[in-house]
Design a binder for these strands. Structure first.
Lengths: 174, 174
DNA sequence: ACAACTGATTGTATTATGCAACTGGTATGG
DNA sequence: CCATACCAGTTGCATAATACAATCAGTTGT
């Protein structure tokens, strides 16, 4: 546990935890794809993470308190990974990263529609999403409301499906 | 130039460019420390980057259009690195990363005071800072005003100095 | 009993990083 | 005009991180 930090700069310390090509993608899948099991995270993403890297990153994120882990009551070997409050609060960073990438990089339409809605929704939508994530991941908070349907994630997912359906139809017609 | 991307997700594409432990620190120093030369970037930061890593990252950021490079008229071998519009627009991401790190990680007071002011200043302050960065880095924009004194960077720097001065006095008294 | 699935681990090859020394060229002061 | 310091990098080498495929032991459903 004797960690040596390069400096006390908040940006540097954050990069020491999240500054690699996989950590944020894992959190992205937990956050937007609601993937909570090792196998879902391993095979669910487009990018194809290796199992040893996934295991290593989950361990590190766990040690840093960005995610938590508990047993799945339905299966003795299943573990459920959840975001902690720290993890949930990464959402605005994802929103900005998504907006930046969408503006300047060769994104695909179907994978950037969520980023677009999140950017258009602004901080109010982020706050709503974070409340839903807290309910799903960090457990009950006092005075908590059952999340109104549709949730933000459902909205984003529906938009993704709409794009995919249209694209499939276009491909068929062509 | 035949780059293979892992996916068309905006978050993934952004991480493919900026997802390492150094790229964002270099941009941070250019943005907040106004370091524009190789040597300034090499020796100016607390974290101590190696010269070959710096050279490699500058090359990559240049290729990705996040920074630009031009000759320094005052010295035939000097190069001046500048942020492009893409680079300037990373500022909100830095603001959020700084805020997150400040909240959850063991930051030092003097190196997090800038993040605090930037968080408190909110999007309006970010926009002002980005306008100043555009003037300094990407050249004149139509209808541009000479930046009002003090600039945002000067404000941040002054706050840093205040903390450092107080800390030095406290250390002397103790 | 057995196949499929669970969260991982192991071995090996490749790539990235860290560190120090070094390069060719440029300004500067005496 | 020469020594010195400075400039943006490059090179060689050791170590660390990552990628990929195969494998593991325990669990579950059939």
């Amino acid at each position: 546990m004797n960690e040596r930090h390069r400096s006390g700069c908040p940006i540097n310390l954050t990069l020491e935890i999240l500054g690699d090509k996989w950590s944020l993608l894992i959190i992205r899948d937990m956050m937007f794809g609601n993937r909570r099991h090792f196998r879902e995270l391993l095979h669910g993403s487009e990018e194809g993470i290796a199992s040893n890297i996934l295991a290593d990153r989950l361990k590190r994120l766990l040690a840093q308190g960005v995610i938590s882990k508990r047993d799945d009551p339905s299966h003795k070997q299943k573990a459920i990974y959840s975001l902690t409050e720290r993890g949930v609060e990464l959402l605005p960073i994802f929103a900005h990263i998504g907006a930046w990438g969408r503006r300047y990089l060769p994104v695909s339409e179907e994978l950037s529609i969520r980023a677009q809605l999140l950017e258009e929704g602004g901080p109010a939508m982020w706050e709503r999403f974070m409340q839903e994530l807290r309910a799903e991941h960090v457990g009950a908070t006092p005075g908590e409301q059952p999340p109104a349907a549709p949730t933000v994630r459902e909205e984003l997912q529906a938009a993704y499906q709409t794009v995919m359906t249209r694209k499939a139809k276009e491909a068929q017609e062509a």
